[in-house]
């Protein structure tokens, strides 16, 4: 494992000048250093650490926004695809893609940031859905079965787990697997599914239709319009991107903060940048996104209740 000491350039651009009712942008800056270039940033729960990957999710790196230390977590294929932190930000869970007879399989590894230790938590599987934070580990489904993988004793109160399985929206709750189709569309294809921080709402996108929030039974409670790669900021706000293309190339994209009540839709990126794949930490009051050409931008927010 290689560790780099790099500088964080606090590129103060705009402080408090943008505001949408009770949301203010405090700071926007680029994470400095040529090594910190990549895509799909993931902020730790406290917003003090940043995971990022290469264009095709091969490899995973962690950058500490406080100590400015860069750590290579893994150089495996698939490692950068939707990694998660545990609740206290001391562990990272990520996948490791291998091909057997040209069939894709994913294993899940953990990386202990304190002990600098890797452990394989799930052996290579087919159809491994995305990870959802659970106690000191995670939940994940594979081939229509919910797996729990934690460090230490697992409590009985398992929260709902939401995911897509062959682009169907699936909820595992109370020991039961349920396929939801909130929009009621035939052949609706669900992507970018996640559970709200209070475990009561589901955020999802229907390809070609838009992004929505529903309750756990699939009743739509908010329609957010065209908003790709959405993630929760907190229980009231979602961050996502509005990207445009010409059928071949990405031509424009901006990152927005959207309130579930429909009253706030606030751009967080600048007009002249192609901003994509945001991540959020409400505890750290931060949003991170990558520009198309690989720079990673941090936006610090002041969000009043």
């Amino acid at each position: 494992m290689k560790t780099f000491k790099i500088c964080l350039l606090g590129l103060f651009l705009i402080a408090g000048s943008l505001s949408a009712q009770n949301v203010n942008i405090v700071k926007r800056y680029k994470v400095n250093g040529n090594e910190v270039k990549g895509t799909c940033p993931v902020l730790s729960p406290a917003g003090d650490k940043l995971l990022f990957t290469s264009e095709n999710q091969k490899g995973l790196w962690l950058y500490d926004l406080n100590t400015k230390e860069l750590i290579t977590i893994c150089e495996s294929e698939g490692a950068g695809y939707a990694p998660i932190f545990n609740a206290d930000g001391t562990k990272i869970f990520y996948r490791k893609t291998i091909y057997q007879n040209r069939r894709k399989l994913d294993a899940i590894e953990s990386f202990d940031l304190v002990k600098k230790q890797k452990i394989e938590m799930i052996s290579p599987q087919r159809n491994l859905a995305h990870l959802q934070n659970y106690q000191n580990g995670f939940l994940v489904s594979t081939d229509r079965k919910l797996l729990k993988a934690t460090f230490g004793k697992t409590k009985n109160n398992v929260p709902p787990y939401v995911c897509t399985e062959d682009l169907k929206l699936v909820v595992y709750a109370n020991g039961k697997r349920t396929e939801l189709n909130p929009t009621g569309e035939n052949n609706a294809r669900y992507i970018w599914v996640s559970l709200s921080p209070d475990n009561k709402k589901i955020l999802f996108t229907v390809a070609g239709k838009g992004t929505y929030v529903s309750d756990l039974e699939g009743k739509i409670t908010a329609s957010l319009g065209y908003l790709n790669a959405p993630v929760w900021y907190n229980n009231d706000y979602v961050i996502g991107m509005q990207d445009k293309d010409d059928g071949h190339f990405i031509t424009a994209s901006k990152v927005l903060l959207v309130s579930l009540n429909g009253k706030i839709k606030m751009p967080l990126s600048l007009e002249n940048e192609i901003a994509m794949y945001p991540s959020a930490s409400s505890k750290g009051n931060k949003v991170a996104y990558n520009q198309l050409q690989g720079d990673i931008i941090i936006v610090e927010l002041d969000v009043k209740p």
Binding site: K104, L167, I191, N228, A229, K244
Partner: peptide, 28 residues
């Protein structure tokens, strides 16, 4: 996993959604 089944503007998906469909479906 086919990303569209009609030749309509509504089915002309953003490229990011097509990529997400392939990734989330764990295709080979």
């Amino acid at each position: 996993i086919i990303t569209r089944t009609t030749n309509t503007t509504a089915d002309d998906l953003p490229l990011s959604q097509i990529v997400a469909m392939a990734n989330e479906a764990n295709v080979d």
